[in-house]
Design a protein around this nucleic acid. Sequence first.
DNA 1: AAACTGTTTGAGTAGTTATATAACAGAGGC
DNA 2: GCCTCTGTTATATAACTACTCAAACAGTTT
Lengths: 118, 118
Amino acid sequence: MLLRVDHASDTPLFEQVAASVRTGAATGRIRPGDRLPSARDVAASLDVNLHTVLRAYQDLRDEGLVTMRRGRGAVLTEAASHLEQIHREVLDLVERARALGLSAHTLASFVKEIADDR
Amino acid sequence: MLLRVDHASDTPLFEQVAASVRTGAATGRIRPGDRLPSARDVAASLDVNLHTVLRAYQDLRDEGLVTMRRGRGAVLTEAASHLEQIHREVLDLVERARALGLSAHTLASFVKEIADDR
DNA sequence: AAACTGTTTGAGTAGTTATATAACAGAGGC
DNA sequence: GCCTCTGTTATATAACTACTCAAACAGTTT
């Protein structure tokens, strides 16, 4: 199955769904132009509310990773084609920070601060 | 003043306080070995509750950026000496991602996912 | 028309955030 | 020793936000 979710996890369901899609795109399981499974299908197969899935999809749209139109579904954009490369760079940076005694949480707060400023 | 806070902002106060300290360390205004102003002083001068400041300090401790002991206060660790370099690398990465059509939010979610896995 | 798709609206619940007050306990100066 | 500084812990509470759910709505495709 493409998308997975852990109901016992402390990270929000919609965030897990979004993360699944990003990972799927970063590993090439989903490609630009591909349509994501419909929100209702995902909701049914993950035993999650429709709204929760749509919330995840909308976040991905806000990031520019998918386009959405009713009747047509959610489609992966060209921007997603570089996810793999960027994801690798993020891993490298986390590793480098770690070597300097800095946690991923510190990095996360830096990135978040930059992200929120726009 | 070293620490600043915007009561009207939508980001939590304790997070703003923590971010102030990180920025202060990244710009060399605070150095390893320096003691942060006492939580009570900060609370009074920012018109914020003591708990709010301590929450920020504790987060920084969890990240390994400060050590805390009662009677002595919160002291910046050696790890903080590399904050400037890492912060610059984060800015570079955000820039590179942006050039590929990826938002800082996408990056943030990657980093957060890595950070939460530990 | 029928069967899909996302969109919108509304609402309930749970968790987070910030506050306040108080008592506790280690560290250091006098 | 005593006083005052420091963070720590406990308890309570109000306001707010996040999260989830349900049902009706409106384009798109077949």
